[in-house]
């Protein structure tokens, strides 16, 4: 069977680096980052997700939308939650799913990324879901795939994790409605977090009232104020009057690299305990992208407490990923929207 690899011509210095996410009709084709989506696409994804979340409440949790399509999970970095929710999302859309754990596979044998891609394209894949430890990997793949293939970024390096940010926004909207009166605080390792970066972009595009980050100086990126956030180094000040608290996972290698003195010190100053939670609004919700380090960034009784929506985030992640997949696979098809 002849397989043609028609490569789109990309100018060396594209005027809009995010334009690649859209097809010639302006329809979302790849989801690589929140930047460039704008409030209209973000809202459309969240609204579409509402429909899919109601599907997952039914006895038969499946719709026939992507019957006959093939989704390939390309995971160059291991991940359980993200991969399984993408897999479940694709299956609930009736797509066929292939999981490739490339952290342990062909690339280790010296095959180049492009060769791997071409081989998988030859299996008639329609969508790649890409997780990679290097920033920009999903962009690179999107630039080189065949015209009918869509790419969804499932996390690249420190850069971006758009579906996580969208499911967080979805969860906040379900609990709090309108974003404009809300104060949202992101707590922890902002600097090395692709999740935090995407969350800041999505909340800005939804016109959130006030966005705060709370962390020690060593874990705040230098240019963070450009994103319109208020920086706090003290939990009591930072959590005052906050409606939503997003805790980030603290990775142990940060301690080894000398950015933090110790886990105990971090927990004492920034760990979300019941005592510190009381400094926020009484109806504040507590979020965490998972997996949570209990006793490092969050107290067990808070993670399991009445204000926690951590497990809801996981369920909502399936509906949001169903929305992203079906919207991206609508590209190049003359969508009427």
């Amino acid at each position: 069977m002849a397989v043609h690899f028609v490569r789109p011509k990309i100018p060396k210095f594209a005027p809009d680096p995010w334009a690649i996410q859209f097809d010639k009709n302006g329809h979302l084709r790849h989801l690589l980052t929140i930047e460039g989506l704008g409030p209209q696409w973000v809202t459309r994804i969240l609204d579409t997700a509402e429909g899919f979340v109601s599907v997952t409440d039914r006895e038969i949790k499946k719709v026939p939308l992507l019957r006959g399509r093939t989704v390939v999970n390309l995971f160059f970095e291991s991940s359980t939650r993200t991969r399984t929710t993408f897999e479940l999302a694709a299956k609930r859309l009736s797509a066929d799913v292939l999981n490739l754990n490339l952290a342990t596979s062909a690339t280790k044998k010296g095959e180049s990324l492009l060769d791997t891609l071409r081989n998988i394209e030859a299996m008639q894949a329609d969508m790649f879901v890409v997780r990679h430890e290097q920033s920009g990997a999903a962009h690179f793949i999107a630039r080189h795939v065949a015209p009918h293939v869509s790419v969804v970024n499932a996390g690249d390096g420190w850069h971006s994790h758009p579906t996580q940010a969208l499911l967080d926004a979805f969860t906040i909207r379900r609990h709090k409605g309108d974003f404009s009166p809300l104060r949202v605080a992101i707590v922890g390792d902002i600097r090395h977090s692709r999740v935090a970066r995407s969350q800041m972009h999505v909340l800005n595009s939804l016109n959130v009232g006030e966005l705060r980050v709370i962390a020690p100086r060593t874990l705040i990126p230098t240019d963070v104020e450009k994103l319109g956030v208020r920086v706090f180094h003290d939990m009591r000040e930072g959590l005052r009057d906050v409606d939503v608290i997003i805790m980030l996972r603290l990775q142990r290698e940060r301690m080894e690299s000398g950015l933090l003195p110790s886990e105990e010190e971090f927990y004492r100053l920034y760990g979300l305990t019941e005592e510190k939670l009381a400094w926020a609004k009484h109806d504040a919700i507590v979020m965490h992208p998972g997996p949570a380090n209990r006793g490092v960034e969050i107290e067990s009784s808070v993670a399991d407490g009445p204000q926690s929506v951590i497990l809801e985030q996981v369920s909502n992640g399936i509906g949001v990923r169903m929305a992203v997949m079906s919207l991206c696979m609508s590209a190049n098809r003359g969508d009427q929207a």
Binding site: G51, S330, D335
Partner: peptide, 23 residues
């Protein structure tokens, strides 16, 4: 019922905008 997810024209028209989900 919102039949958006069950339409037979997804291959040609893509996903139709959905006003409100099935209930």
């Amino acid at each position: 019922l919102n039949i958006t997810f069950y339409r037979d024209d997804f291959h040609t028209l893509g996903l139709h905008p959905q006003v409100s989900p099935s209930d």
